[in-house]
C-alpha cells in the first residue's frame, strides 16, 4: 500500500478499451476523425467571424440573443460532458450498470440541450430571423446548426451503444465503442465552449 507512485505506474495495466490491439487502433483512428471535424468547425467559425457584422435589415447579435436559454444549454452540455466522464470511469472499474446509468443521464441532458436549441431557433424564426435574413444569420445558423446536428447524432449513437452494452456487457469491443463515443461527446462540448464564447458572449460585448 505504501509503494511509491512510480512503482505503481509500472504495473498499471491497460484499460479495457486499449486491451485489444485491433480495437485500440480504432481509437487512434477516431482521433483522426475528430481532427477533420476541427477543420469543419474551424471553417464555420471563420465564416462567422467574417459575416458577423453583415446584418442587412435583420437583427444584430446583441438584439437577437437571449442569454437565459444559452446559459441553460451551456449547463446541460457541460454537465453531460461530466456524466459521460463518470461513465468512462465506471467502465474502467468494470461496472456495466453504473456505465449504462451515466450514459442514460448523458442522453437525457443531450436531449434537453437539443430541445432548448430547437426552441431557440423556432423563436428566432417567429420574429423573422431565419437564415434568409442576413449573412450574419446564415453564418450563425450553419455554425450552431452543424453543432446541434452533431449532438443529435450523438444521442442516437449513445442509444445504440446502450443496447449493445445490455446484450454483451463490457468487452474490448463495446468498451472501445463507448470510449470513442465519449471522445466525440467531449469534443462537442469543446466546440460549444467556443460557440458560447465567440458567438453568444461576443455578441453581447459590442
Amino acid at each position: 500500500m505504501s509503494m511509491p507512485l512510480a512503482e505503481e505506474h509500472e504495473v498499471q495495466h491497460l484499460p479495457v478499451e486499449f486491451a485489444d490491439e485491433k480495437e485500440s487502433i480504432k481509437i487512434t483512428g477516431f482521433w483522426m476523425f475528430l481532427v477533420t471535424d476541427v477543420l469543419i468547425f474551424g471553417s464555420l467559425f471563420s465564416t462567422y467571424a467574417v459575416y458577423r457584422g453583415a446584418v442587412a435589415q435583420g437583427p444584430s447579435a446583441n438584439q437577437l440573443f437571449q442569454m437565459g436559454p444559452v446559459m441553460l444549454e451551456t449547463l446541460l452540455l457541460l454537465t453531460s460532458s461530466f456524466t459521460i466522464g463518470l461513465g468512462i470511469y465506471a467502465m474502467r472499474k468494470g461496472n456495466v450498470k453504473a456505465l449504462m446509468g451515466w450514459m442514460l443521464v448523458t442522453i437525457l441532458l443531450g436531449a434537453g440541450f437539443v430541445g432548448t436549441e430547437i426552441h431557440d431557433f423556432v423563436s428566432f424564426a417567429a420574429i423573422g430571423a431565419t437564415w434568409h435574413t442576413s449573412a450574419f444569420l446564415s453564418a450563425f445558423d450553419i455554425l450552431v446548426g452543424t453543432h446541434g446536428a452533431h449532438v443529435t447524432f450523438g444521442i442516437f449513437w449513445a442509444v445504440t451503444l446502450l443496447f449493445q452494452l445490455k446484450k454483451r456487457g463490457i468487452t474490448a469491443q463495446t468498451a472501445r465503442k463507448v470510449f470513442t463515443y465519449s471522445l466525440y461527446w467531449h469534443f462537442l462540448d469543446i466546440v460549444w465552449i467556443f460557440i458560447y464564447t465567440f458567438v453568444y458572449l461576443n455578441g453581447k460585448i459590442v
Partner: peptide
C-alpha cells in the same frame, strides 16, 4: 475558452492515453 478546452481535453478526453 482556450483554457477550458484544454481542461476538457486533459481531464475528460484523456488525450495522452494510448496503447
Amino acid at each position: 475558452a482556450v483554457f477550458q478546452a484544454g481542461l476538457q481535453l486533459g481531464v475528460f478526453m484523456h488525450l495522452k492515453e494510448s496503447r
